[in-house]
């Protein structure tokens, strides 16, 4: 499933990232690499998602969240 479908409070493991080098680089910088765990803190269809990634809060737009495949835990 894509990250954008994940509901608040749920945890998931990042499986793959569909996107160019620039986009992937930004995700890598913030610790979102395949195999890393994310937890959804805030999400609604009106705006970006807020995730907990390795203890820091990451804000990510819906468009980008759609391009990240995750496996719900």
């Amino acid at each position: 499933m894509s990250l954008s479908e994940l509901e608040p409070g749920k945890c998931a493991i990042v499986e793959s990232i569909l996107g160019g080098k620039y986009l992937r680089q930004k995700l890598v910088n913030l610790g979102m690499i395949p195999g890393s765990e994310v937890r959804v803190i805030r999400a609604n269809k009106m705006g970006p998602m807020v995730l907990d990634v390795q203890g820091s809060q990451i804000m990510i737009g819906q468009g980008m969240a759609k391009r990240i495949n995750v496996k719900q835990k």
Partner: peptide, 10 residues
């Protein structure tokens, strides 16, 4: 071209 995607640390 690609619009800038929001991804940043809060």
């Amino acid at each position: 071209g690609e619009p800038s995607h929001l991804i940043m640390e809060l």
